[in-house]
Simulated scan of single mutants.
Amino acid sequence: MKLSAPLYYLKRKARLLSRKENIPLHTALDHIARQEGYSGWSLLMARASASTPAGKLFSLLAPGDLVLVGARPGQGKTLMSLELAVEAMKAGDRGMFFTLEYTERDILNRFHVIGAEWERFAGLFAFDCSDAISADHIMERLASAPRGTLVVIDYLQLLDQKRENPALAVQVRALKSFARDRGLIMVFISQIDRSYDPSRKPCPDIGDVRLPNPLDLTLFDKTCFLNNGEARFQAAS
């Protein structure tokens, strides 16, 4: 399918229209879809889903994987991660979203942005917006999660923000062991360092991950970096 601009740009355009015209986001999204020749946003997303970066990345994942999704702000890393959860649920598995950034309303709004029907996945999807999110909290919440559950953690650099939490490296190692033992897929949303210059290279890479505290990035099995509508996947080690 041919669109006038990348999906992330169309989504941003809809958000701006929603604020400017004081209309619901879903109305703005449908308006943008009609400009692209589709009757509504859900139809546009359905046609695009087969070739989405999330669909391609999900096909590369296996139970036990730790995945790093990194991008500068506004490039779609949260939407990509939520799309991965939707791909898992389409396959009959469960999705879990831990966030220190978003509210319940924010998350539900983003289901519409990515063209997913919340009602279809309500029994398979759960989210946690607790201020207590850490590796211990995540593992406790996932104690009974079935094999194949895709877990999104938003975001990596906030896990050890509280001084009482263990070091970031300790938490990621614990989550890696837990994911492998339980057969879970864990997706960590990551910030990119401000020094990254898109004029020098079109997409960030593992060397551009913002690390205020030490962390061995080879703990991640796969990575996905986004910029300006481009997605690049690779093994991290």
Rank of each mutant, 00 (worst) to 15 (best):
A5Q: 06
P6F: 02
R12A: 09
R12M: 12
S18H: 03
K20F: 02
L25K: 01
H26F: 06
H31W: 05
I32S: 00
Q35L: 04
Q35H: 01
E36M: 00
G37H: 01
G37Y: 00
L43C: 03
L44F: 05
L44H: 00
M45R: 12
R47N: 08
A48E: 11
T52I: 03
T52E: 11
P53E: 07
A62K: 12
L66P: 04
V67Q: 05
V69S: 02
G70R: 00
P73K: 13
Q75D: 03
G76T: 07
G76W: 03
T78C: 10
M80T: 13
L84R: 06
A85K: 06
R94V: 09
G95Q: 13
M96Q: 09
F97G: 04
T99E: 05
D106M: 06
H112F: 11
A116T: 04
A116F: 01
F121R: 08
A122F: 13
G123M: 11
G123H: 12
F125W: 07
F127S: 14
S130A: 13
S134N: 15
S134H: 08
A135I: 07
A135D: 08
H137A: 15
I138P: 09
R141P: 13
A143T: 15
T149A: 07
L150D: 03
L150M: 14
V151E: 02
V151W: 04
L158M: 15
D160S: 12
D160P: 14
D160T: 10
D160Y: 04
A167E: 15
A167N: 15
L168V: 14
V170H: 15
V170C: 14
V170D: 14
V170R: 14
A174S: 13
F178L: 07
F178Q: 03
A179V: 04
R180F: 05
D181Y: 08
G183E: 03
I185W: 02
F188M: 05
Q191S: 09
Q191Y: 02
D193C: 02
K201Y: 06
P202V: 12
P204S: 00
D205R: 04
D208E: 02
V209L: 02
R210P: 01
L211W: 05
P212S: 12
P212T: 09
N213H: 15
L217C: 05
T218N: 10
D221T: 05
T223E: 03
T223H: 01
N227Q: 10
R232F: 10
F233Y: 07
Q234Y: 15
Q234R: 15
